[in-house]
């Protein structure tokens, strides 16, 4: 059983600073996400959106130099990436990795079993996992043929993105971080991926979407929209902020931010 989130946010990020080598990328990010919410993070190229998502997922390339992230009452940044995953954090990669020779079935089952063991549950039988996978394949409308192949190997850009959503559906995260999962999707795929996210949405979990475009937000209505600029969240608002950005670009925010 997962803890009920009695008024505490599912994720609370405070003053987060992170760097890669000598390069400081995140310069004090503050973000609160409650269970049941969908947040969108927008911002120009290179502003640190992927870095934020990857730091939360535990990518070893980054060093956190200050700040904290509390997830479900735990000090998230102190945990190995696999422990975060088992506790329900999921990152859909901006650039999913090809795994030649790794069968999707085996890969996903290992992830599901690792999570179950973490929660003191038994591994799934092959049969039960088969059933689970088939159900999720139908749910996210992915070509079953893709699941028989090696993970992401030779997949098109859009197929890789769909496959991230399949993984999300199978692993049933409490906190899903989707890093530009909408980029490179055709209109049908965008609808399917958005449907997938909406179907998985519940009072107990939350989604953070990193995106450049309004179009996915037409399908998945966010509770909050944030603008990340030079490693900081400089403005937050409702869904209307995304429309405004689409219309006006980032310069006005950049100017406004520089007066603060």
């Amino acid at each position: 059983m997962t803890k009920m989130t009695n008024n505490n946010p599912l994720l609370s990020v405070r003053g987060l600073h992170a760097s890669a080598g000598d390069l400081e990328i995140l310069n004090g990010v503050d973000l609160e996400v409650n269970a049941g919410e969908v947040h969108a993070i927008m911002g120009p190229n290179g502003s640190g959106k992927s870095t934020l998502a990857n730091v939360l997922a535990g990518r070893p390339d980054y060093t956190v130099t200050a700040g904290q992230a509390i997830y479900d009452g735990e000090d998230l940044l102190a945990l190995e990436p696999e422990i975060r995953a088992r506790m329900g954090v999921f990152l859909a990669f901006q650039y999913p990795v090809e795994l030649p020779g790794v069968r999707a079935w085996q890969f996903l089952k290992a992830g599901v079993d690792a999570r179950r063991q973490h929660h003191g549950e038994e591994e799934l039988s092959a049969r039960d996992f088969d059933r689970l996978l088939r159900e999720k394949v139908q749910m996210v409308e992915i070509d079953p043929e893709l699941v028989r192949r090696a993970v992401n190997e030779g997949f098109s850009g859009g197929e890789k993105k769909r496959n991230e959503i399949l993984q999300m559906a199978v692993l049933e995260p409490r906190l899903a971080l989707l890093d530009e999962t909408d980029s490179g999707l055709d209109i049908d795929a965008l609808r399917i991926v958005s449907d997938g996210v909406n179907k998985l949405r519940s009072q107990d979990n939350a989604t953070v979407l990193v995106t450049h475009y309004q179009r996915m937000l037409n399908y998945i209505r966010p509770d909050k929209v944030h603008v990340l600029l030079d490693g900081r969240i400089v403005r937050s608002g409702g869904p209307e902020l995304a429309l405004e950005l689409e219309e006006k670009g980032y310069d006005w925010i950049r100017e406004a931010a520089s007066y603060e």
């Binding site: 070893p60 190995e80 696999e82 995953a85 088992r86 999921f90 990669f93 020779g101 890969f107 992830g111």
Partner: peptide
């Protein structure tokens, strides 16, 4: 990067390495 992809799905270092080696 590949190793991190597997770990982000819940596999520990040893399990991830083993899976990649046998692949």
């Amino acid at each position: 990067q590949t190793l991190f992809y597997l770990r982000s799905r819940g596999l520990d270092l040893a399990a991830a390495s083993r899976m990649l080696i046998s692949a």
